[in-house]
């Protein structure tokens, strides 16, 4: 058995080594796979904050992923077609600058999370699951009904957005951007988990009554956690849009929300690097099983079912055999 800290270093090292090897071996496909894993991991890091630390089973996180994606798609669309996004009351132009797009994506998805969270967190348990799912679906239908931004067909980003000083059109620099952002999100997530706020949030998950007794209102804690969680997932959505150079309502689909939960649980709920391990495993399975059979989803479903029924604690739990810190 290995310590979780050593395993974490191994995982981050492996995620860095794969694309470097891909670069050296001139297999850009490997770099794209690793980038995809890093972005999905970032989205799941966001979800893990709500799910693992806060105990909030959100089945609507694809909504924030999609809001972030659409922020990138819409800004890029207007910049490419040289049309302003709006002219009244102030003129807002589109942009192809990644940092600016990230800012808009984070703010927009945080606002969406604030609205959805404020309503959903009035309830708990199965109600919370169903309501986050329903609001996610609402945004999905809203995106489908947006003819200005492609409706069901979505928006294409013809040229990947730019980052000052880097050539984002090449796979390796774009991977580096995603990897650094993932690292920063992990750092933030770790800082939160050891902060008084994180401890209170974790305590509210374990015993709501006790947290209330010492005078802390769980609703506020959870809402703040939900907003941060949504914002991180939204940032991942903006990167995902740039990876595929395409945004469509599929990014808001509830299937994706389910897959985010799967990523977190495959790795290990509430573990810092659980989402990264889960995303890596998911992308590997998708690539490997997808090559074996067109119907690989059946095997994914069966594997997931077995993990849930018989192997709780996820992959990190199994490898470290330690109780969750």
């Amino acid at each position: 058995m290995i310590r979780e800290r050593h395993l974490n270093a191994l995982v981050l090292g492996a995620l860095l080594a794969l694309p470097l090897w891909g670069f050296w071996a001139e297999a850009p496909f490997m770099i794209t796979l690793a980038t995809r894993a890093a972005i999905l991991a970032l989205a799941a890091v966001g979800l893990n904050l709500a799910l693992g630390l806060g105990g909030l089973v959100s089945l609507g996180h694809a909504a924030f992923f999609g809001v972030g994606g659409y922020a990138a798609g819409i800004l890029a669309l207007h910049a490419q077609s040289f049309t302003p996004m709006m002219t009244w009351p102030i003129t807002i132009q589109g942009t192809t600058s990644m940092p600016l797009i990230w800012l808009v994506a984070v703010v927009a998805s945080a606002l969406a999370a604030l609205g959805i969270g404020a309503l959903s967190l009035r309830t708990s348990g199965v109600y919370f699951i169903m309501i986050t799912l329903a609001f996610g679906q609402m945004l999905y239908y809203f995106a489908v009904a947006l003819p200005a931004y492609g409706g069901e067909d979505g928006v294409s980003i013809y040229v990947r957005n730019a980052f000052p000083g880097l050539n984002t059109l090449r796979p390796l620099p774009f991977f580096a951007i995603c990897y650094v952002l993932l690292g920063l999100a992990l750092l933030l997530s770790w800082r939160i988990s050891v902060s008084p706020f994180g401890l209170a949030l974790s305590a509210a998950r374990q015993s709501e009554a006790r947290v209330r007794t010492v005078g802390i209102e769980p609703y506020r804690l959870r809402l703040v956690a939900f907003v941060i969680s949504g914002a991180i997932t939204g940032l991942a959505g903006a990167l995902f849009a740039d990876l595929n150079r395409f945004v469509s309502p599929a990014m808001l689909s509830w299937h994706l929300s389910g897959e985010f939960i799967v990523l977190v649980v495959l790795g290990g709920v509430g573990r810092l690097l659980g989402p990264v391990v889960g995303a890596g495993l998911f992308v590997f399975l998708e690539h490997w099983l997808g090559g074996v059979s067109d119907h690989w989803m059946i095997f994914l479903g069966a594997a997931l079912l077995l993990v849930v029924l018989f192997a709780r604690g996820g992959l990190i739990g199994g490898l470290t055999a330690g109780s969750r810190s």
């Binding site: 699951i129 939960i261 119907h295 989803m297 849930v308």
Partner: peptide, 20 residues
């Protein structure tokens, strides 16, 4: 509830792909 969501989500994957 988390386990219930995951297991029944897995069932959806199996049923949908199996039907296909």
């Amino acid at each position: 509830h988390l386990d219930q969501v995951l297991a029944t989500f897995a069932l959806i994957l199996i049923f949908s792909e199996g039907t296909r």
